[in-house]
Amino acid sequence: MLELRLVQGSLLKKVLEAMKDLVTDANFDCSATGFSLQAMDSSHVALVALLLRSEGFEHYRCDRNITMGMNLNNVSKLLKCAGNDDIITIKADDGGDTVTFMFENPKQDKISDFEMKLMDLDSEHLGIPDAEYHAIVRMPSLEFSRICKDLSSIGDTVVISVTKEGIKFSTRGDIGNANIVCRQNTTVDKPEEATVIQMNEAVSLTFALRYLNSFTKATSLSETVTISLSSELPLVAEYKIADMGYIKFYLAPKIED
């Protein structure tokens, strides 16, 4: 028996919006730790890892580990039927082939439930070891989103370089080229407005902008994004989900032939 009650239902709505364009079908794993997902995009260039810890739910019952295969577009459609202030409860029976999403409005005078058939998906779970990154940059998520959007009107790929000077995003296209540098800036009114650069070694990598733009769909989940870079590893863009966990996007670089 699985029963997860999330008071801040809008979080789940935002999580689905953040993933549904990148990943079509995915297995949600439920265990004592929490509600999690790991999935790749269809071309296996990007990977998303989600964790919503059990402590973040008002009620969390998961009698045994359960994997539920779902089409994220369909889940997103169902969650669009929930109001932003609704409480969302996810229910499933052990060994069953359906999941139920229940929505309660704040006044508790409207209760909706939607039952969805689960899918049997081949799960390809990758082991992601802890790594030391050459550079870790925390910046306002809206700023990162703006940069990716602006640069994609000029080019298809971006070179992200971190030096002592800051983090530089560069692109080139038919009309010309563009460089945006964000310097470390900790003299801000609120900590979430800061740009903080931790650099052990300078790093410069090339990425496809369309994936980065897709990651920025998670912007509403967190005011900051943490970008980790190493020359031998995929980029990680992490959006922390307050009191609950995270959504992390991994992106393999483009390498000179």
Partner: peptide
């Protein structure tokens, strides 16, 4: 000319 790497070239299946 740039080649797009895949995630599986960095992380292995478990």
């Amino acid at each position: 000319q740039c080649i797009q790497k895949r995630i599986s070239e960095y992380f292995s299946r478990v």
